[in-house]
Nucleic acid binder design. Structure first.
Lengths: 348, 348
DNA sequence: CCTCGTGTTTGGATCGATCCAAAAGTGTCG
DNA sequence: CGACACTTTTGGATCGATCCAAACACGAGG
């Protein structure tokens, strides 16, 4: 209750108070099995009595373990990464680890600065959604520093160099195309991003594969542009104005897809009936849009949890075999991609 | 380029390589003005040549400054806090500080655990959106630890105990009510949350004040309930079904307001013409909703920036006078609160 | 009684920086 | 040339924990 002495309490003080050595106190703090039950109790009581606060910095100096993890995302203001971070946070908290967070804004420069800082702080591991154009050499450099690094959602190079956690967007997009084909769609356009990173390539690969499978190679059309809601609206308006307008759209993410819905309603068309729209991520808003938006669910929170778990595992065994965890990305079908006139079938 | 020796490079190694003492190297690393230009250059070159990495942990042990800041929000998956965090991150990055992040989920227990951890890590300051029901004693305890703490968006107790950064929601809501009254609305309902925290009380105070000012005390109505989009929809449906249905709604946040828009369109009513709706936060989505949503703009990113700046200032002068920064929360009027039949006036 | 093994405890040495008071270097001026 | 002021550099001591080899306690077995 009462505030304790102004002077800092250290292991030495509680050792004196409990009548043992510093080493023993240290062992108690580390929850070691070596120390006898009675002693442990005495030390813990002394620590509580003196209002001791563990100094993790001092411990780090000697042991070079920090109980921290660095997390780099492109933009923490993006709800997708917010949910990802929530999953990471949840898992780390349970293990008494703490995340440092930085937004790279997809800038290589800011990413590099942050990585340097993380190295100075000697985080135990790194969870990295690499900024666009990150060279493979950067990832190798991190490994060279002896810092475990988990790539999340995106990976540099053809296939992940080391540990990786992401969603199976390729299969997700394949399922989306098949679903559309079954409903009779043939002109199916992919609204992709401009940048060429792994997550983008996966969607594209799935799209190409499924269009080919359906014998629709010559009707394939990939539209590239910015990935905001606004852009989604504009891009859709432009596409529908063309003389070979698509009857179905698969959008890079839900924001773009929601923009597409705006465009349709602006033109007095009904999504689902007049033009099918499918997004990616299944953000909360998707289910509540009007009409409800079909989406390929990437479950960011689960990805975050898995990534954090893998990081903890890698900290425990740095030389263990590298893992590549790819979570399912199931297609959630809602009104925006159903021809059926039974509209407004939202769940309450 | 090539990987350096496996053995760790320390100040001592650089000192030997550059032919100076450890102390001098340390001064260079701290960017001190004391050291001569030529020496500084020699040391920097030696550091680069040896691939030196500053060990912040070791520095902390001696100097008890960590260049870190702890941030606690309720839910990082909420876009509002995402934007807030983006502002914080931005400002801290510029000052070479790094944030630890934790979501409390409005749980006192998780908040307490995180605070304890922050104390062990000896962060230089704390940015805290206090969880509901946080006792004033907790905030005092933090100050007692000698850790600067900035309350953000919410504060415990009647008025902030120490430093505080938030938005002027009281004035924002007053402006909203006045705007509605001018348009002829009289039955104006406030859709509030269930919890009783400062940010909630401020909205309520503004509402009461403005309704009284307009002589509408007896028509005042505060509806309390959960604050999700879904809940916003349901609550609005319930309200409009009543026999004294409101003609205007001021919602606790934009999510609730967007839910209200869904409810109106579900009933075949047009927001703005049939029932006015105003939200709080002015999230990106507000401008793009159909019809566009009027909102009291809280500018989370700016709040984040201000909070981080104040934290840096407080670190520099711990005993400086406490500040209470309240940012304007201007009303952004869009179609959802305009009677005028000039609809679909969105900016392109 | 001595040896041995098992379970606990301990005293330096150490991690890698910063702090501080004092020493060394440099130049100016009477 | 020496005193003086000013700039630059330096060598311990220190921060508060962990690590490790060695010491200690104690009961069992020969």
């Amino acid at each position: 209750m009462g505030s304790t002495a102004r002077t800092r309490v250290t292991l030495k003080d509680i050792a004196a108070h409990a009548g043992v050595s510093r080493s023993t106190v240290s062992l108690v703090m580390q929850e070691s099995e070596l120390v006898a039950g009675a002693t442990r109790k005495r030390v813990q009581e002394a620590a509580a009595a003196l209002g001791y606060v563990y100094n993790r910095g001092a411990a780090t100096l000697r042991s070079s373990r920090t109980a921290t993890v660095g997390v780099v995302v492109h933009d923490i203001a993006n709800p997708f990464f917010g949910a990802l971070m929530a999953g990471i946070d949840e898992t780390l908290q349970a293990a008494d680890y703490i995340p440092f967070l930085a937004s790279s804004g997809d800038s290589l420069d800011r990413q590099a600065r942050f990585l340097a800082r993380m190295r100075e702080h000697r985080v135990d591991a790194l969870l990295l959604c690499p900024a666009e154009e990150t060279p493979a050499a950067s990832i190798e450099a991190i490994a060279d520093w002896g810092m475990p690094c988990i790539e999340v959602m995106r990976h540099v190079g053809k296939s992940p160099l080391g540990d990786y956690v992401g969603a199976d967007l390729r299969t997700g997009v394949i399922n989306a195309v098949r679903h559309l084909v079954i409903q009779g769609h043939r002109r199916i356009t992919l609204l992709a991003g401009i940048a060429d990173h792994s997550a983008d390539r996966e969607r594209l690969a799935g799209y190409r594969h499924a269009m080919h499978e359906a014998g629709l190679d010559d009707l394939s059309h990939v539209d590239r542009g910015p990935l905001t809601r606004c852009a989604g609206r504009e891009r859709t308006l432009a596409l529908l104005r063309g003389n070979t307008a698509p009857t179905a759209l698969i959008c890079h993410n839900d924001l773009v897809a929601l923009g597409a819905l705006l465009a349709l309603s602006h033109l007095g068309l009904r999504a689902g009936r007049d033009c099918a729209v499918i997004g990616v991520d299944d953000i909360e808003e998707a289910a509540l849009a009007e009409p409800a938006l079909s989406s390929i669910a990437t479950h960011p929170r689960a990805i975050g949890r898995n990534a954090a778990e893998l990081a903890l595992k890698r900290i425990a065994q740095p030389e263990g075999e590298r893992q590549r965890i790819v979570l399912e990305a199931p297609l959630v079908i809602r009104a925006s991609s159903r021809i059926s006139s039974a509209v407004a079938q939202e769940s309450t």
